[in-house]
Nucleic acid binder design. Structure first.
Length: 282
DNA sequence: CGGTTACCCTGGATGC
DNA sequence: TGCATCCAGGGTAACC
């Protein structure tokens, strides 16, 4: 669920509390989330260390530690999130960050424990690790780079958009929203898109992501919340995701929900009229 | 190597 | 009420 807009919202919420501040202590409550480091490594890195900055890389949260203390990388994945107010479920707290001079700690919670937390001794190695598994950030990618990357794959355009190696930051919700905005059927082969369609897609990408960031992301059920425990408002204004059977805001047709090969177990929402599979290539 | 699926996890909803 | 099943979907290992 946390995709680019949700992670960007987390980072913006964490920055004033962590950036330039000194960590007192890190407490790892659930070692299952640790990846590529020991509990002792992470806890040692956090003792008395100043935070140099908090940044987003795709769907990763990167906490840079000052000096040569390395970086902490948090991948919220499905249900991970930060809390600056006491979280509703104490048993879902996985890591606690105590900050010097701040009464309450920063909690990292993760209901389903699919999130990952790691500490890397060297900031450069973290960047390299990210670059090996990710393409350009979805908010930064140029129209030309997007075009080049999409015409190299025969997969469905939605599958390609969600591939972090193609571009970083898009998941199931925003893939559907971006494709609606661009008027493209999610099952179109990525390499079948015309130049104008790719241009539309690039424009839609920036628009949708920026609108979602402005709304502080997408919340439904007991999922994602902002660091203050508030719901993100994007799903009150979105076009298709979660709107099966409801009227398309543009043409009034009923929004459809489907599943298709290449995206096992994942729902795709689209408007059959605004996003026809066949196009007339006017 | 590109494309596709299974699996990791838990809690809430649904069905009998 | 109790129990089984399904669903949510980000990421990666493993497969064809």
């Amino acid at each position: 669920m946390p995709e680019l807009p949700e992670v960007e919202t987390m980072v913006r919420g964490l920055r004033p509390v962590l950036s330039g501040r000194r960590l007192k202590r890190i407490d790892v409550l659930d070692e299952l989330l640790l990846e590529g480091c020991e509990r002792a490594d992470l806890e040692r890195a956090g003792r008395g260390t100043t935070v140099g900055g908090v940044e987003r890389r795709g769907k990763w949260v990167v906490v840079r530690l000052a000096g040569c203390a390395g970086v902490i990388v948090i991948q919220p994945r499905m249900t991970g999130g930060f809390w600056l107010v006491r979280p509703p479920r104490e048993d879902h707290v996985r890591v606690i960050f105590e900050v010097v001079g701040r009464g309450e700690p920063v909690w990292f919670c993760d209901t389903r424990r699919l999130g990952r937390v790691s500490w890397l001794a060297d900031a450069n190695s973290a960047e390299q690790r990210f670059a090996r598994s990710h393409g350009p950030d979805a908010l930064q990618i140029s129209a030309a780079a997007l075009r080049d990357r999409l015409r190299r794959t025969t997969r469905a355009i939605k599958v390609a958009l969600m591939d972090q190696k193609v571009l970083a930051g898009i998941g199931n919700i925003y893939a559907d929203e971006v494709l609606f905005r661009a008027g493209l059927n999610p099952q179109r082969n990525a390499n079948s898109l015309r130049r104008r369609e790719l241009s539309e897609l690039h424009g839609a990408l920036g628009e949708v992501l920026n609108e979602a960031i402005a709304a502080e992301g997408s919340s439904f059920d007991a999922g994602y919340r902002t660091v203050l425990g508030l719901e993100g408002g994007f799903l009150a204004q979105n076009a298709v995701y979660g709107r099966e059977g409801e009227a398309c805001r543009r043409c009034g047709s009923a929004i459809l929900r489907t599943r298709f090969p290449g995206l096992v177990g994942r729902s795709t929402y689209y408007c059959p009229r605004c996003q026809p599979f066949r196009t007339d290539f006017r």
